[in-house]
Amino acid sequence: MASEKEFISLLNQHQKIVYKVCNLYMDRHSDREDLFQEITLQAWKAYGNFRGDAKFSTWLYRVALNTAITFFRKEKKKPEIFSTDIIPEQPEEPDTLIEEQVKAMYAAIGDLSKIDKAIIMLYLEDYSYAEIGEMMGITANNVAVKMSRIKIKLKEETQKQLATN
């Protein structure tokens, strides 16, 4: 029988992972809260079968991404646009070039498909292509091809965003 206390303690230590996934997949605050709750519940249900042969963080990523990808809202009141509101604004000072670029890259990541977002998330966490492939259920070669395509797409989108600003 899985220990609830143990699970809560582990999730508490790794909650940044869940928030990252929520921030990446959900635009609105209320949706992020709902997704956080859903990931927590799914992780708790699956925790009984977590044998510890993988790191908890890797296991939690898998649960969180599975939940986020299969989590659909019935109706969207506005189109899903990746929010940049999680980037702290400093209105007094003009944005530096690097901040502008980060914002533009953020927006570009927000326009990616659910699958591409998952791959990017794991890439940002420095997982190898083989590890990403294992989590996604595809080959490392396929991950490499997708990553290369995503990088080009992000570069183009970021340039477009910067040009319009």
């Binding site: 249900k45 009984g48 296991w59 998952a118 996604m136 259920g137």
Partner: peptide, 12 residues
Amino acid sequence: LSATTLPVKSNL
């Protein structure tokens, strides 16, 4: 299915 953690593709 709820109790297992499959790779994304298998889960879908």
